[in-house]
Amino acid sequence: MLLSPAPLHIPDGFLTPFISLVFWGATMIMVGLAISKTNKTLGERQIPLMGLMAAFIFAAQMLNFPVAGGTSGHFLGGALAAIVLGPWAGILVMTAVIAVQALLFQDGGLLVMGANIFNMGILTVVIGFGLYRMVIHRKIGARLVAAGLASWLATMAAALLTSLQLWLSGASRLEIVLPAMLGVHTPIGLGEALITVAALAFIERTRPDLLTSEKAASGGGRGWIIAGIIVSLLAVLLSPLASGSPDGLERVAENLGFLEIGQSAPCEILPDYTIPFLGETHLSTIIAGMVGALVLLGLLILLGRSLRKSPPHT
């Protein structure tokens, strides 16, 4: 099959109506903001541009490439869209992509579409653009590294939020879904990062005018840096916390009135229910995260080298 559904597209039935509606609300606010911003800042030329960019992201998601151990690098595109189009237009483009995937191919549900858009279209844009915006005036090397890190982190954050939503809906146990999702998405995010970096390098070589800093910055001010850093930090801090001590998180969720059913009682977890190899998740997640980041950094440097060496070919 051409379309391999990414494990981030939540189908209907997995999230409770409450969680679905909360994220629909958040998504509608962000998309509404994006619409009013783009209406103000973008020229009439941008309408076909955003349409074609949406089709481009959609088509680019088919260009998988094998990473390791049978997983293939699946391209989500949120960070790339935000970097080349600016954050607001990026949100609209990703919203359209996710909506069409759900409507036309049932890749992701309808009632849960708000959550899917939020995870894959808004979170990825905030992190992707926010971190890239920091180095937007720097040399291409720094920008590529930032873009790579940002897209890896964006994918991981999307996986994290997806796990949290599933858990809050009582569709899965946190101590299982979280390591599983983060584990699966570590290589996927790696693929995302590598593709994003290589694509940006290609664009920089052939049409550098499309990536000028004024152009990219016109869509989003410095506020995006702060938003990007805060959201990234939240994601980085939350994932070890959540996988290390789900009890604490559960208590918070319960106090906030989020937790529906299923895993609500932290102290009632049957003593028999233990999975030893996940026992020390706290430490192991942090170590895994660090190793992952190091590997990514190394690969990015390698990639940057090989890109610089090769002559531009069209």
């Binding site: 481009f56 390791a68 790339l80 590598l194 970096v197 290609f202």
Partner: peptide, 28 residues
């Protein structure tokens, strides 16, 4: 190598991007 494969795929994505971008001009 992985980076080589990623580079090839990334170049394809970049190429697809440019073609879409230029097409959007013609559509405009």
């Amino acid at each position: 190598r992985l980076t080589w494969r990623a580079k090839v795929t990334g170049s394809m994505v970049g190429q697809l991007f440019l073609r879409s971008y230029e097409r959007s001009d013609r559509i405009y």
